[in-house]
């Protein structure tokens, strides 16, 4: 029961996923729409477990006064700050459609977006420092990689076009042709890998989703 029931469900749902895509009938289209919509609902409910897990981890840290527990308080501060205004919903409360204005928009504009952009832009420094350490043209392959990277980096900034109009064209050509060719070859590999892994899941050979006890 513990093993066979999930394997049977995966088998049935897997075949359903394949057949519904290949049967061009109104019933299969309706069924496909309602299953995908239903899975969105399931995923949304499951997401709350992750939320619980995160908050629980920080709560334990505060309760035990582990190192850095004060920072965990800020997780709760940020969480409730956003949550209260989100659920208040400009007075309409959380059982009516979301009002796209007010404090939630303010928090999104002045807290969420700046933090997100800053975190991503910090990566520019790390990528640059990693590149400095690894981009040594010690072999022909490394040299090709270095030249391609420099040409694209230089080609996408406006000043390159002012120095020589060919720089942006070269960057665009590198992205559209050699880069696209390699991406297509990699796509073929990914697709074959996904198909084989999917078949393994459907036929119960791949069972890692059962938590390693299958």
């Amino acid at each position: 029961m513990k093993k066979n029931l999930p394997l049977t469900i995966a088998f049935i749902m897997g075949w359903l996923g394949i057949l519904l895509d290949y049967i061009p009938h109104k019933v299969s289209e309706v069924l496909m729409t309602s299953i995908t919509k239903g899975l969105m609902v399931t995923i949304a409910i499951v997401a709350f477990l992750g939320l619980y897990s995160l908050l629980n981890m920080h709560w334990i840290k505060i309760k035990r006064k582990n190192a850095g527990w004060g920072y965990s308080l800020l997780v709760f501060a940020g969480f409730f700050f956003m949550l209260i205004f989100g659920l208040y919903n400009q007075g309409d409360l959380f059982w009516k459609a979301q009002v796209e204005q007010g404090m939630v928009e303010w928090i999104y504009t002045y807290i969420f977006t700046p933090c997100q952009e800053t975190m991503f832009s910090i990566l520019a420094f790390f990528i640059a420092s990693a590149a400095y350490r690894t981009f040594r043209a010690k072999s022909m392959e490394a040299g090709i990689l270095l030249v391609a990277a420099v040409l694209v980096m230089f080609g996408v900034v406006p000043i390159s076009g002012k120095i020589w109009s060919g720089f942006p064209e070269i960057a665009q050509w590198l992205l559209e042709y050699p880069n696209m060719a390699v991406k297509r070859a990699i796509f073929f590999g990914i697709a074959l890998g996904v198909v084989s892994m999917s078949l393994r899941i459907i036929f119960g050979i791949e069972r890692s989703y059962m938590g390693g006890e299958g």
Partner: peptide, 16 residues
């Protein structure tokens, strides 16, 4: 940490 809290609540609100 503050960002993590805000982002988590934002995910909650969007999902809701």
């Amino acid at each position: 940490h503050f960002y993590v809290g805000v982002a988590t609540a934002y995910l909650f609100i969007v999902t809701w």
